Simulated assay, not measured.
Amino acid sequence: MKKVIYFLVLGVLFLNCESKKEVPKTVDSNIEKTAINTVLNTWHKSAAEANFETYFNAMTAESIFIGTDASENWKNAAFKEFSKPYFDKGKAWSFTSVERNIYIYKNGEIAWFDELLETQMGICRGSGVLIKNDDIWKIEHYVLSLTIPNDNMDAVKLINKEKDSLLLKKLEK
């Protein structure tokens, strides 16, 4: 009798576990990509218009912004502090996406992208990760990079040689 009860309990537990499996979420990638494009376009526009609150509300509280300088690896609070004087002057920076690729993870809650940007520095590349929380996409991680034509790489290496050397020495300590 104990064996019968034991198997009944195991059967009930198994059925209970099976019934609680989550139904896979269906993700409409076109809708999500439209929402992500809106977030990124508004984010870039808010910098050009010096709208500090809108700009930083597009980012998570834990977000990271990596700038073009090797020393620029900003956590959100530090990036806000660095950026505030630029926004206070009425125009922070102006980035316009001229090409963007968006990729959405199958659960529909994580996306990553790359974009070519027209900027005051020339053409740059941005890439990043967004997360969706409570149906709202926010930027979690962003990397801004200068684009360097391969034919110009030797000249750029010469320009950067001294500063790169100093930074490497600092990081080795």
Results as ranks from 00 to 15, higher is better:
Phe95Tyr: 13
Pro24Lys: 14
Ile5Tyr: 08
Gly128Phe: 00
Leu13Pro: 03
Asp134Val: 06
Asn37Ser: 14
Lys3Ile: 08
Ser83Gln: 06
Glu72Gly: 06
Lys106Ile: 13
Ala58Leu: 05
Gly122Gln: 11
Asn150Val: 08
Thr38Asn: 14
Leu166Arg: 12
Lys163Ala: 10
Asn152Trp: 06
Met59Thr: 09
Lys138Trp: 00
Asn30Ala: 14
Gln120Asp: 14
Asp154Thr: 10
Glu172Gly: 05
Phe52Trp: 12
Trp43Met: 07
Lys2Gly: 12
Glu53Tyr: 10
Asn51Pro: 01
Asn16Pro: 00
Ile64Glu: 03
His44Tyr: 14
Lys75Asp: 14
Leu166Ser: 09
Ser165Trp: 03
Ser29Pro: 05
Asn73Gly: 04
Val9His: 06
Val98Tyr: 03
Lys21Leu: 12
Trp74Asn: 10
Ile5Ser: 04
Tyr103Ser: 12
Asp135Glu: 11
Lys3Val: 05
Leu8Arg: 07
Tyr142Asp: 07
Lys163Phe: 08
Lys45Asp: 11
Lys25Asp: 01
Ser94His: 03
Glu49Ala: 01
Phe7Leu: 15
Ile159Glu: 09
Lys45Glu: 12
Tyr55Lys: 03
Tyr105Asn: 08
Asn51Arg: 13
Lys75Gly: 09
Glu53Ala: 09
Ser46Phe: 04
Ala70Pro: 08
Trp93Leu: 09
His44Trp: 13
Gly108Val: 05
Ile136Pro: 00
His44Asp: 14
Gly128Asn: 05
Lys33Arg: 12
Tyr105Phe: 10
Ala70Cys: 04
His141Tyr: 13
Pro24Phe: 07
Asn57Met: 07
Asp135Leu: 10
Leu10Glu: 04
Ala50Thr: 03
Thr119His: 03
Lys80Tyr: 06
Ile136Met: 03
Asn51Lys: 15
Asp164Gln: 13
Thr60Asp: 04
Val12Ala: 15
Leu117Ser: 08
Thr60Leu: 08
Asn16Tyr: 13
Asn107Ser: 14
Phe65Leu: 15
Tyr105Trp: 05
Leu168Gly: 02
Gly67Leu: 03
Asn152Thr: 05
Glu62Lys: 15
Lys170Leu: 14
Val129Pro: 04
Ser71Lys: 13
Leu116Thr: 06
Asp28Cys: 02
Glu18Cys: 08
Thr119Trp: 02
Gly67Arg: 02
Thr38Gln: 13
Ile36Pro: 00
Ala70Lys: 12
Thr60Asn: 02
Ala48Gly: 08
Met59Trp: 12
Val4Ser: 08
Gly108Met: 08
Lys84Tyr: 10
Ser127Glu: 07
Asn150Tyr: 06
Leu144Ala: 10
Asn152Glu: 14
Ser127His: 07
Leu15Gln: 09
Asp164Asn: 15
Val143Ala: 07
Leu10Asn: 05
Leu144Phe: 11
Glu118Val: 08
Ala111Arg: 01
Asp154Cys: 01
Lys84Phe: 10
Tyr105Ala: 11
Lys132Cys: 03
Ile64Leu: 07
